[in-house]
Amino acid sequence: MEIVIDAHNVSKVYNPETIPVHAVNNVHLHVERGEFTALVGPSGSGKTTLLNLLGGLDRPNEGKIVINGTDITDMKENQLIDFRLNNIGFVFQSFNLIPVLTAKENIEFIMLLQGASKKQRDERVQTLLKEIGLSDKTNTMPSQLSGGQQQRVAVARALASKPQFILADEPTANLDSKSASDLLDIMAKLNKEENMTFIFSTHDSRVIERARRVVTLVDGRITSDTATFQISH
């Protein structure tokens, strides 16, 4: 299988000079293409920090992170921004859509940064809106969408750049159970049909149930890494 993420001996220490906090401690993690992986653990266990490191949003104090064969550990900032744009999709807990852009424009924004043509953008946006079941909300502003709908648009935005994988930080934390279930259905469908790799941090047992691999973090260390049997819905 093709390895998409290879985190080798990764550590992240905050305040190394004063009171060191080991947010991520000597983590080894390999993620293969098409995985549907949940990072679980109590609050403060280092889930979000690990996701930030894997997404190139933060830099490790030690170790190496290789994404799809490219070592991003020492990349310069602008290179890293470009790398994120073209290789990694992000879904945030608070949706973080651009409030002044419509659903279509939010999705299109990423492709504009990539320099895609109008035709390419229009086709991709229509496809993605259809996949997330929001074809009728093309020109709707985020403030007029429900939380679940906003998070679905966020997933579509993450997919717009055709990334190697999607990192989702507590994607269902702010959603009701119906919306959370709908979102998970979409993510699972994309994972299955398009072989899209998902890594998400979560506390949510419903999400953990749907994951095919569960990595447990405690105090910044991986304490278990289990392939699970997916419950059929």
Partner: peptide
């Protein structure tokens, strides 16, 4: 700030 952080995270260069 949060919005700017998100924009840079998803690939908007700081220059832009």
């Amino acid at each position: 700030q949060r919005e700017f952080g998100m924009l840079v995270a998803v690939g908007l260069k700081k220059r832009k």
